[in-house]
């Protein structure tokens, strides 16, 4: 079954299938307009989350990797995972974009 990493329970293991991204645009809405009027562009190019995919890849969190949820932080906090014997914490929002196969 394909589910986001966030829906695994503590201690459960799965295999990463894909990492999905399509973040919201940052120049829309009230504050986005404010930002545009101030002439503040992007610092750094690439879409939202683009850097995060790379960073996850560097940690070995790639399609095909075995991933285990060690624990979840309270109040929608980050998820601690174990991949290739090392442990990381990943923000909940980011973790919800990691799709795994159980």
């Amino acid at each position: 079954m394909r589910v986001p990493l966030t829906s695994l329970s503590e201690g459960q293991e799965a295999v990463v299938v894909e990492i999905t991204f399509g973040g919201p645009s940052s120049s829309t809405g009230f504050w986005g307009g404010f930002r545009r009027r101030l002439g503040w562009g992007w610092r750094g190019k690439g879409g939202p989350g683009c850097g995060a995919v790379k960073r996850l890849a560097d940690l070995g969190i790639l399609p095909g990797a075995k991933i285990k949820v060690v624990r979840k932080a309270p109040l929608g906090g980050p998820i601690e995972v174990e991949v290739h014997g090392s442990r990381f914490m990943i923000g909940r929002g980011l973790a919800s974009k990691i799709i795994v196969e159980t």
């Binding site: 940052s26 504050w31 503040w40 992007w42 995060a52 996850l56 601690e80 990381f88 914490m89 980011l94």
Partner: peptide, 14 residues
Amino acid sequence: RILPGVPVELIMEM
């Protein structure tokens, strides 16, 4: 909200 750029989520080694 005002500052340019996108929020970065936590990715950190435990």
